[in-house]
Design a binder for these strands. Structure first.
Lengths: 215, 215
DNA sequence: ACCTGAACACCGTTCAAGT
DNA sequence: ACCTGAACACCGTTCAAGT
């Protein structure tokens, strides 16, 4: 109750919270996300984040080793949500056949990336810089294993066109990743696709890929 | 002859060229590329580029409006080379069938991107920031038109699986783009693929895509 | 016409000193 | 234990002054 922002009954003169016991780390992450949403990734400076959070320029360095670590932490949170969204998309199609489940992973990825372009951009930027954290690697391994299994099952039930399974997996992943990147890079307009339609079009492209690799 | 760097017969004491008539613009571009190759995109500062070129901190601004414009100019050169490489790849397969030509475009793209990761990264970074130059848009339109034609012909000659042509085109492009991005992002190792093998594997994935969309 | 070099307003990061 | 605020070495960019 004491940490709740709505608990303003005592000491109303304390306008700026001192964060001396509050959750500065979380506040910094929130401010960073908001700053990215307002001004883009490039505009993120540790000083500006500190300013928005009402602390001194040096304060963030008690919680994050450097600017990269701050952005990396934002990416970590974002990736957690992405993985969760993909997982939910998979669970929504629980009764579907293996190939439809494989599709659900890709569609879940696309839906989330298009709905959260800022977060996807941070994830993507992290990949560009950081040489994989162990948690990230584990999650990748897990998801890849799931996709491989699904395609094995699809093969067993005669749903899949013959071919190298892990190359279908990598292909699906690269396709979804490429579409999402093209979106955040603003490439769709120059491909004759209005922004409003880019998710639908991307899903259609992915669906045609799924149809192509069907038996 | 006066502008040739090998014409060092007169005035050997003039160790640092003054660039007062030389091609400072080109020298700055070269220094930028070299800096990116040595230290990465993030390390590019206008001041460091100026330092390496032997000019004052303000000099580059006579040739480029700002840091972004400098990087953008590097990207422009890079993109020219990419387009040229793709064109050559296409011409190498002049006698091939339409679908093989379509394949040649994708493979040419992949080969170039993997052989020139630095340049590809700059191109990709530019897309992230700049809202398409007219030249870029034209080149995109042209290439897309070519790919569409090829798939039309492939359909006419019964080589292509039924489906939406422009979605195959977009799919092929997104797939190649995604694979190239995964490479420069260093994602292949965490996909169980050694860096040395990532081009071959990417080509194999793309080839399996081509096979999938074959009739 | 093209470059210098000082100047300004910023940054990331560190670290003693405060609470 | 956690934050402040001064300090340092950078940056991007501008602009008078030099050649």
């Amino acid at each position: 109750m004491a940490t709740s922002p709505s608990a303003v009954n005592l000491l109303p003169k304390q306008t700026k919270p001192s964060y001396h016991h509050g959750d500065l780390r979380r506040a910094l992450l929130d401010a960073t996300v908001q700053l990215i949403e307002e001004q883009g990734l490039e505009a993120v400076s540790v000083r500006e984040v500190a300013r928005r959070t009402g602390v001194s320029p040096g304060a963030p360095f008690r919680h994050f080793q450097n600017r990269t670590a701050l952005l990396s932490a934002v990416a970590e949170v974002a990736q957690e949500r992405l993985v969760q969204a993909v997982g939910e998309s998979l669970r929504d199609d629980e009764k579907a056949d293996p190939l439809q489940k494989f599709r659900a992973i890709g569609i879940g990825f696309l839906r989330w990336a298009f709905a959260n372009p800022t977060h996807f951009q941070v994830i993507s930027a992290r990949l560009e810089i950081e040489f994989d954290s162990p948690t990230l690697r584990d999650r990748n391994d897990e998801l890849r294993a799931t996709m491989n299994q699904l395609l094995s099952q699809a093969t067993a039930t005669g749903l899949l066109r013959p071919g190298d399974l892990s190359r279908y997996v990598l292909g699906g992943r690269a396709l979804a990743y490429g579409l999402a990147r093209m979106h955040i890079d603003g490439q769709f307009p120059s491909w004759g696709i209005e922004s409003a339609n880019s998710l639908n079009e991307s899903i259609a492209v992915f669906d045609q890929f799924i149809a192509s690799i069907s038996a």
